[in-house]
Design a protein around this nucleic acid. Sequence first.
DNA 1: CTCCACTGGGTATGCTGTACGCAGAAGTTG
DNA 2: CAACTTCTGCGTACAGCATACCCAGTGGAG
Lengths: 242, 242
Amino acid sequence: MSDAEYTNIWMRPERPARGPKPAYSRAQITEAAVRIADTEGLEAATMRRIAAEIGAGAMSLYRYVPSRDDLIELMADHLMGEIDLKDVPTGDWRSDLRRYAGQMRATWLRHPWIATANRSLPGYGPNQLQLIEQVMGVLDPLVPIDENLALMAILNGYVEGAAREQVTTAEEVRRSGLTEEEWTGRNYPYLRQLLDSGKYPIFTRIALDARQPRLDRDEQFQHGLERVLDCIEAALPRPAED
Amino acid sequence: MSDAEYTNIWMRPERPARGPKPAYSRAQITEAAVRIADTEGLEAATMRRIAAEIGAGAMSLYRYVPSRDDLIELMADHLMGEIDLKDVPTGDWRSDLRRYAGQMRATWLRHPWIATANRSLPGYGPNQLQLIEQVMGVLDPLVPIDENLALMAILNGYVEGAAREQVTTAEEVRRSGLTEEEWTGRNYPYLRQLLDSGKYPIFTRIALDARQPRLDRDEQFQHGLERVLDCIEAALPRPAED
DNA sequence: CTCCACTGGGTATGCTGTACGCAGAAGTTG
DNA sequence: CAACTTCTGCGTACAGCATACCCAGTGGAG
C-alpha cells in the first residue's frame, strides 16, 4: 500500500527519518554493482553477489532498493554521472558536441554491459536529466526546441549505435572466456564459408578491405562523427556573415 | 567434443542425416517463440512456454537449438527476413534508403522485444547478411566501401535509435499491465516534481512544447530521416551536372 | 533381418529474484 | 530513566528458470 505511491525509483526516498542507522547506502550498492558488471558482466551482478561484495546479507539490499530492475536503473544513471561537461557550453557548439560524443562513447566502452541494460535510454534519473540540460543547451540558443530534439536524435543515434556495435562484440568475446585472437580464430571457419559461398559480395569486400581500418576504430568513429556534425551544421541557420 | 566444432548456430546443421524423422523444426520453434515474444514480451518466451506452444516437451527443443541464446539469435534473424527489398536498388538511392528505413522501423515496432535482445545488431545470420547486401548495394555504385560503411552507420544509428526509444517506453507500459493513459497518469507526479524543481528548464520546454508533436511520432521520424538523407547526399560525389 | 543413431520427453540440479518473518538496535516519548 | 515504536540486517523458503542427464522407443542403413 505505502509502496504503491512511489511510481519510480527516483521518487522513493532512500531512507525514512526514524530508526537505527543503516549500515550501507544506495550509492555504495550501486557502485559495487557497477564494479562487478564492469569486470564480469551484468548477468554476474546478482543480488547475492552484490551483497557479498559489500559484506552484507543478500536480502539486506532490498532495504535500499525495491528490485533488481530498479538497481539497474540506478547503475545506468550512475554512469551518466561520469560524463563531465562542466564548462559546456563554451560558445563553440562543434567542439562541445564533439566532446560530449567522445565522453559518451568512452563511458560505453568502460561499461560494456550498458548495452544489455534495456532501461538505459529513457531513464529520467537526475544525472541523465542533467546531461540532457547540458547537451541540449549547446544548440538551444541556435535552433528551436523541436529542431534541437531532431538533431540530438541523429547525434545520439550515431554515438550509441557505434558504441553498441563495438561493445556487443567485445561482450561476446568476454563471455566466451577466450582471448580476442582465439575468438577470431574460432569464428574463422564461418567467415570463410560466407566468403567462399559467393552470395555476399559486398560483405566480402567489407571483410577484406576493412582488415586494416578495423585497427583504429577510434578514427573510424571520429570520421563518422565529423560527418554527423556537418549534417548538424547544415541544419543550423546561417550566422550573420555570408 | 562434436559440439565444439560448431562455433555458431549458423554452422550447426539443423538435422543429422540419419535417424527417425523429427516432429518439429527450427523454423516452427522460432516462429512460435516470436509469436509469444510479440504478445507477452521476450521474458515470457521461456523454453517451457515455447515448447508448450507447439505441443512439445520442454527438453525437446534442445534437439533443435543448442541454447536459448542461440534461439534468440534465430528469432532476431527471422525478423530481418520480414524486410522486403526485392526490387532494390531501383536507381533512386534516396527512395531506396527511405523505404529501407521505414521497413526497419516498422519491423521494430511490430516486435518491440528486439530492443532487449542484445544479439540483434552484429548477428551474421543469413537474413541479416542478405539485408546488408541489398541496403549497401544502394550506395555501392556511388561511393567507396569505407564511405558506404560510415554513411550506413549514421542511417542505421538514427533508425535504430528512434525505434529503440519508442519501443522502450511501449515495453515499459506493457510490462506495467496498465493502459497508456493510466501509465501516463501514474508517472505524472514525478514529471510534475521535475518541472516544479526548476532545475531542468530545457526538459521542461520539451515536456510542454512537445505535447502536441508527440502525437505523430511517424512524422517526427520522417522529418529526422530526411535530415539524415540530406547528410548522406552531401557526402556523395556530385553527379555530372552542376 | 539386426543394429544403433537418433527421437521426444521425464526427472533432477543449481541457479535466480524475492516474499516473509524474526531478533535486536536505535530513536522518540513519557 | 523506562517504555514503546520503528526500522535494521539477514536467515529461511519458494517458485521459476535454463539445462544436464537418462531412458524407452523408433526407423533408416547395412
